[in-house]
Design a protein around this nucleic acid. Structure first.
Lengths: 181, 181
DNA sequence: CGAAGAATGTTTACGGTGCTTACATTACGG
DNA sequence: CCGTAATGTAAGCACCGTAAACATTCTTCG
């Protein structure tokens, strides 16, 4: 994790971790089958830390505003640890890694729970998809400089603005036809 | 581009393009300063092709349904050329590359135009941000297998469903208060 | 306790890669 | 027609992933 945040994904080499650990170049292979296994392991702890970060923003959001605060936490995580975030999402993932799969499922469940509480009468699945996609996309567009991020507070305002624009003004409250036909 | 789609980002090495071009290993350095420059150049043509793909879906969408078709085109582009898409967005981009900057600006303008036509009375900027983020996020979540994509039509249905859920059911038509306070 | 076996680390080696330098060739325009 | 710029070549360095053979420690169990 240190190497990743110091020098980006390129710096995360098996030889580098061996050096950092003060150990021979081949030693890491006793712990990780190959580089991809190492990367997957780092990504898995990234997912866990993202989960903690979201829970810290709000354990179980149940209003649009609380949802927005979780969205801000998501994007800030991406901006504070860009290399890790890119490692987690910007790379072909091996679905064989159970640790990794479980960790991403946890994030998915968190979002799903939010949607069920905030919009109890909506069809949760597509809406959860849409909301995760929205927040995820905001994170990536900021990361790529497609949206300039002068300060954390400016980013937070844009994220809350965007989510509010799509959600607060939405007909998804009780008694609407947001379900699939 | 051939190498990228054959073997992913890893296969796009300067030595490999030299071999493919039937030329010595150092020759590419006459055309690209380093590997990152090559990658940026490939990404730039990727942006252009994405733009063409969107224009092919609908040159100037002005209804939510036309917007949805553009969204489907965006996601399908990502799924058909995953390595290219990841190259374009999943990597730290150098803002120095003008070609690249211009190409992404074109995509941004396209989205902006859609929003201004479909929601003439809304504040275009945050809404365009939100919609791009939504579609972009959908593309990435599909790419990472966070949403399984059994068939192109299934993906298309999910994308239209998600966009419709957030847009068609939205109060953003004429005469609403979607602007920033 | 002490030995068998697992876990961990080391050394050495191979081929691939990015990149640099010095040198050769080609193309083309004044 | 020749010189300059563009392009290509050859050789070399340091790094990387990966593998195999060997050495050392740590655990565990009879």
């Amino acid at each position: 994790m240190e190497l990743l945040e110091e020098g980006g994904e390129t710096a995360l080499s098996l030889r580098a971790v061996a050096r950092r650990a003060g150990v021979s170049a081949a030693a890491p292979y006793r712990h990780y089958a190959d580089r991809e296994a190492l990367v997957s392991a780092v990504a898995a702890v990234g997912y866990r830390e993202l989960g903690e970060r979201l829970a810290a923003a709000h354990r179980a959001p149940s209003t649009p505003e609380q949802l927005a605060s979780a969205a801000v936490a998501y994007v800030q995580f991406a901006l504070e640890r860009p290399a890790l975030f890119r490692l987690m999402f910007g790379e072909p993932c091996d679905r064989d890694n159970d640790e990794r799969a479980a960790a991403t499922a946890a994030v998915a469940l968190y979002v799903r729970g939010i949607v069920e509480r905030v919009f109890p009468d909506a069809d949760a699945e597509p809406l959860a998809t849409a909301i995760w996609a929205l927040v995820h996309g905001l994170a990536f567009l900021h990361l790529d400089g497609k949206l300039d991020a002068p300060s954390p507070t400016a980013v937070a305002e844009r994220v809350t603005g965007a989510t509010r624009a799509l959600l607060t003004a939405t007909n998804l409250g009780p008694g609407t036809e947001a379900r699939k036909p």
